[in-house]
């Protein structure tokens, strides 16, 4: 039986797809058989972040409609043998995903995977609700910024009322992942701090991902940022996934980086 995790946020452009790719890759790197699903119908881009866009033949909607088999539709990751990508459909029909269809696919995947990571589209409507409905755990991706925190709170409300577990009187396990964090700006009082966001959303903190040049570089190359193990963002995602799996890791990248002597002399 696979564990179903949704990566969600309400607001767009906060780092859901980046997180889904990094999270799924890190789970696979740690030995867990993982599939990551793009629920963003019409705006497929997980395949780009995973670097498998040229190998997309069939998609999630084809699979649901029985036009392709699981074996034909899943794309094996180019780096990891135990990681697969299920691409979104480019159809313009936003309602192409149905509860029954999604459930059928998730059940089938559940038989052979340890983790199913669902990359949610933005918003709080049909697509986002479909991505979170079957989830047992949720990664709430939030930026330290008013509209993002507000939307996260809305999506938490939806998880608590409209998910399958909520309908059964149970709770989806929630994790806060604060991304695009800039400690310098927090120190100058220009950005909400981790504590501010934790206090308002009142869900447990899984990790903090710093604003990082490594993320753009990774998406340019189509290689999820956890493979860049030297980078701050790569390490922060690795920490977050280790914590998710029960390891005790201290939070890093919360403080302003002190410039090294050489950097101070030569700039940088």
């Amino acid at each position: 039986m696979a564990k179903i995790i949704v990566v969600t946020s309400g607001k767009g452009g906060v780092g859901k797809t980046t997180t889904s790719a990094a999270f799924a890759s890190a789970l696979a790197l740690k030995g867990h058989k993982t599939v990551v699903i793009d629920f963003d119908v019409g705006l497929r881009n997980l395949d780009l972040v995973m670097g498998c866009e040229r190998r997309v033949v069939y998609d999630f909607v084809n699979l649901i409609q029985g036009e392709s088999t699981l074996g034909q539709t899943l794309i094996k990751d180019k780096k990891l043998d135990n990681l697969y990508v299920l691409p979104a459909s480019q159809t313009r029909d936003k309602d192409a995903l149905s509860h029954e269809g999604v459930e059928k696919v998730l059940n089938e995947l559940s038989e052979s995977f340890d983790y199913i990571v669902c990359d949610s589209p933005a918003g709080i409507e049909h697509g986002a609700q479909m991505a979170l409905y079957f989830a047992e755990e949720a990664i709430i991706v939030t930026n330290p910024e008013v509209s993002s925190v507000r939307d996260s709170d809305r999506i938490i409300g939806i998880l608590q009322s409209k998910s399958r577990l909520a309908e059964q009187g149970k709770a989806v396990k929630e994790h806060l992942l604060l991304t695009r964090y800039n400690p310098e700006r927090v120190e100058r009082g220009e950005m909400l701090s981790v504590q501010d966001v934790e206090e308002i959303l009142a869900i447990p903190l899984l990790g903090v991902i710093p604003e990082s040049e490594a993320v753009l570089k990774a998406s340019n190359q189509g290689v999820p940022v956890v493979h860049d193990s030297e980078s701050d963002a790569g390490q922060a995602y690795d920490d977050a996934v280790s914590r998710y799996l029960g390891e005790d890791r201290p939070h890093r990248f919360l403080e302003k980086q002190k410039k090294s002597f050489l950097k101070r002399v030569f700039g940088g």
Binding site: V146, R188, E190, S193
Partner: peptide, 17 residues
């Protein structure tokens, strides 16, 4: 600071929502 203004606004917004 603008961050503390943001926090106050959020408190109100989130409670309303």
């Amino acid at each position: 600071s603008s961050a503390s203004v943001a926090k106050e606004r959020l408190r109100v917004l989130v409670a309303h929502d």
